[in-house]
């Protein structure tokens, strides 16, 4: 009797999850692809090879690359500091890292405008050096960095915590310097977690809309990222083009997922259980 119950329970759970994934993820993806190609290949190609689409793609890649680079450096430093040293305000730092998960991206964008915009006290200083932050590429990068800020640190902290400090202490006793310890002892443990977090960070950075939308100013060909470009095309009644550009983002997401699965698979084969 119990066994039968379990069987039904199991089936119900699987059915619910499958139906949910189908309805919420697969169907919209198929609709995007269908709409993108609905007016033929020529129109699709014209939309994705359009000058403004290419410039938007370039900006998205630039912002993503910068965000991943900065957040990797920051995430490694923070994870190292939090797990290897004890200092005042450590709990606070750990909490602060999570702020971007809790704060709405729109608020983040507005904060950057208030901090670096024309009405901010900082503005005249920046302006005297000719530096433009918001409504320019640096603002887009800042906004992207903000929303993807926790990914690397959050992924690496548990791994380092689980490992403990024994091996590093041993290496230090044997006279190894900081960089040697990092390169030969710490890094091999965290590399899969790091790679995994970089992948997540990339995916999130490419799709960011809210914060970037606020600081962008929507200057076509200059501060328009791919997600913003999709919105513009949609509002201009260019539905096919909007879906064609969306399909680029969807394709990037699928590629990222495949890479993630390969990373997971390889990591597991190497017996590294830290990658989830």
């Amino acid at each position: 009797m119990r066994k039968a119950e379990n069987k039904w329970g199991r089936r119900a759970l699987i059915a619910i999850s499958m139906a949910f994934v189908l309805l919420m993820l697969i169907t919209p993806l198929l609709v995007v692809l269908f709409e993108a190609f609905s007016s033929g290949l020529a129109l699709y190609w014209r939309a994705v090879s359009d000058k403004y689409t290419l410039l938007a793609a370039k900006l998205t890649l630039t912002a993503t690359f910068a965000a991943v680079l900065l957040n990797t450096a920051f995430g490694l430093a923070a994870a190292w500091a939090i797990t290897r040293f004890s200092f005042r305000g450590k709990g606070l730092l750990t909490t602060f890292i999570d702020i971007p998960f809790a704060v709405s991206p729109v608020i983040a964008g507005l904060v950057f405008i208030l901090t670096f915009g024309r009405l901010s006290p900082l503005h005249s200083f920046l302006d005297s050096y000719g530096l433009k932050i918001v409504f320019a590429t640096p603002g887009i990068i800042l906004a992207t960095v903000f929303v993807t800020f926790p990914f690397v640190a959050r992924e690496i902290i548990p791994v380092l915590e689980a490992r403990g400090t024994d091996e590093e202490q041993a290496a230090a006793l044997m006279g190894a310097g900081f960089f040697t310890i990092f390169r030969r002892v710490t890094f091999p443990h965290i590399r899969w977690a790091l790679l995994y977090s970089v992948i997540l960070c990339t995916a999130r950075a490419m799709g960011e809309f809210g914060a970037v939308s606020v600081v962008s100013g929507h200057l076509r060909g200059k501060t328009n990222t791919l997600p913003l470009h999709v919105e513009i095309l949609y509002n201009e009644y260019q539905f096919t083009a909007a879906f064609a550009v969306s399909s680029l983002l969807a394709a990037a997401a699928v590629i990222i997922l495949i890479v993630r699965n390969i990373v997971e698979f390889t990591a597991r084969k190497e017996g590294d259980g830290n990658v989830r």
């Binding site: 405008i113 670096f116 915009g117 024309r118 009405l119 503005h123 433009k132 918001v134 409504f135 100013g217 929507h218 200057l219 076509r220 060909g221 200059k222 513009i232 509002n235």
Partner: peptide, 22 residues
């Protein structure tokens, strides 16, 4: 020359110019 174009709700656009959208 090139003309860079930006569109959005009228009041929102004015706000962006005030905040430094050049």
């Amino acid at each position: 020359i090139t003309v860079v174009q930006s569109h959005g709700g009228s009041s929102k656009q004015a706000r962006a110019v005030i905040e430094g959208n050049e």
